[in-house]
Amino acid sequence: MSTTPATPAGTAGYAMALGDDALVLAQRMAEWVGSAPQIEEDVALANIGLDLLGQARALLGYAGQVEGCGRDEDDLAYLREERRFRNLQIVELPNGDFAASIARLLLFATYQHRLYSALSAGTDPTLSAVAAKAVKEVDYHADHARSWTLRLGDGTAESHRRMQAGLAAMWPFVAEMFTPVPEFAGLVQAGVAVDVAGLRPGWDAEIRAVLAEATLEVPEPTWTARGGRAGLHTEHLGPLLAQLQHLHRTHPGAAW
């Protein structure tokens, strides 16, 4: 893909990618509601899902607006197919057990925190405003995930084993969070988008510290996931979108 300067189409694509991250993870969080290990966690995960959904709506709404083709947040969420979704693969992975979900939340929310912190100082006023608000939210999400990482890593033998396994399952999907997207290079140069490679060292230090305190090992990935930003997903996204979109698509043009 060619480098796109800070054109509306480029900005729309970027906002869509970040919006898709939030939307897909919000969907996964919603799946936990009513099935969490304790009621306090039903409340917490629903709250996290609600925050992510709010971010998704703001970002997708902006994407549709900037794109200028008359698509709104619902058109983007409900009428695009898998190959047009630009989320990172890590967010579309099934929840697995509670440890796997916490592992995923730890890795991704920590990334989002650094991403939004940087984005809140960006040159696009709408994106920086969305990011400024989102930073506070994902700070809490990451904190929640850290608390559980400590409790599960340094709890019982079983929780330690599951947490280690969860991290191992998620680790191949880490690199993609920090892989620069060629299409966004112009946006990064213009200060609209964040240089994600630059986020990795700080993220590494933070994650390694938490894992060490939790008596967990940093996994060695045996393979690397890639392609989400280019619309190349795991086989998990299809069924997720089928469920998300089905009712809306069944009644074309209807208002809800």
Binding site: L23, A30, E31, A46, L53, A56, L60, Q243, W256
Partner: peptide
């Protein structure tokens, strides 16, 4: 997971 609009999804959540 099947709410037909993002607004309705947020409200229900």
């Amino acid at each position: 997971t099947r709410a037909p609009s993002l607004r309705r999804k947020a409200i229900l959540l």
